[in-house]
Design a protein around this nucleic acid. Structure first.
Lengths: 205, 205
DNA sequence: TTATAAACGACATAGGTGTATAATTTTTTG
DNA sequence: CAAAAAATTATACACCTATGTCGTTTATAA
């Protein structure tokens, strides 16, 4: 009895499906991706696919989780270095993220936040808000650490700085979608960001 | 012969249709609005409606133009006042815009920029990029004016400041959609914005 | 009246969703 | 080593919603 294929196999297959879905979302965005598109990309039938995922939002959340796993280390600070250096490094990282915007999930993510069921039904997607708050906290805690170490003496509340940072980066992404990397002058804008951060955080070198 | 109703009548009717469409876009956003929704709202038949507009993008652009007309005065400066005061006033205006975000086209606009045909076919929508560049120029010229009058002495290029401003406001909107007005702490963030603007522009009081 | 612009509503088409049933593969067991 | 049983996958279907067009009807200006 119980012919059941191994659990690892199922896990593995699901992962493959998620990878395929990610590729499609990167290519076509969230709004214009259908279940069929993903099935075609993954080379799987309707029936099989629906046994793994209930609907496209479900697929997207799974892709999001998978993608988040890849960049946990985002705010890992280099020990021994001034925190300010780490922050500069993080901003530079954002730059390459935005440079490679066409090869990233950023577009699909923005679409998801604006146009999916999530908008009307936030309680059904706890992972999403958790995700945001975690990012804010991560940034905030770096600033706090800097204050404790006497490296920073911010003029504005750390929480506001953190939210400001995220807002700005999000806006920069939006503009880049709208106008392209060059027209947006991402570099210039990120330099402006660093300038303002320095003014707010007031690091002692 | 020629039963034709007057041109004013047609113009007037078109305007009514645009108003109805605007209401629907405000309520349902861009992505989830269908032609049928607008027809229902306007109380007009398919055939008649299609004689005014070719497709939904066409409708949206017309709504956008109509909406833009309403707030041309955005950056009109109060004569005799320091320019810095006008800038502060503009930021406050953004605040009320975002407060009333549920009653505005902002959501639909963001969706349009991310999910409409515009994304793949920017050259077919010249009005959109024109619109953006004009905004940048308007902001930039205020800063230049301030420089000429000796009121400002910016540390970063005016063009970068202008783009930075727009990016940030856009990002703030996005976050507000995602989290709501309170959670986003729009006020705090706009105060941060003013702080950074002051540092960059370096106004002499 | 009557010619004709304007408005209406049915239709053909298309693409997508989720499910129910059939086919296939895998595993267990005699 | 069959061959039955169970899990997995494939296919076909029923249903839905939207688009843009087209033949018809309505209303009006001459």
């Amino acid at each position: 009895m119980t012919p059941k294929v191994s659990d690892e196999y199922k896990q593995e297959r699901k992962k493959e499906l998620i990878k395929a879905a990610k590729q499609v979302f990167i290519q076509k965005g969230y709004v214009h991706t259908s279940m069929q598109d993903i099935m075609d990309k993954a080379g799987i039938s309707r029936g099989a696919f629906y046994s793994y995922f209930d609907n496209i939002d479900h697929v997207f959340i799974e892709v999001l989780k998978y993608d988040d796993q890849q960049d946990i280390q985002m705010f890992i600070m280099t020990e021994g270095q001034p925190l300010w250096v780490s922050i500069e490094r993080w901003v530079k990282e954002q730059q390459s993220n935005i440079e490679g915007i066409e090869q990233s999930l950023l577009h699909a993510k923005a679409e998801f936040f604006l146009s999916s069921q999530y908008v009307k039904n936030k309680e059904n997607f706890p992972y999403i808000s958790k995700r945001y708050e975690q990012t804010i906290e991560a940034i905030e805690s770096v600033i706090h650490k800097g204050m404790e170490q006497g490296e920073f003496e911010p003029y504005v509340p750390p929480n506001a700085i953190a939210r400001y940072l995220i807002s700005f980066i999000n806006g920069l992404m939006l503009d880049t979608f709208q106008l392209g990397y060059d027209t947006t002058k991402v570099n210039d804008q990120l330099n402006v960001l660093l300038f303002t951060l320095e003014k707010m955080i007031n690091p002692r070198f």
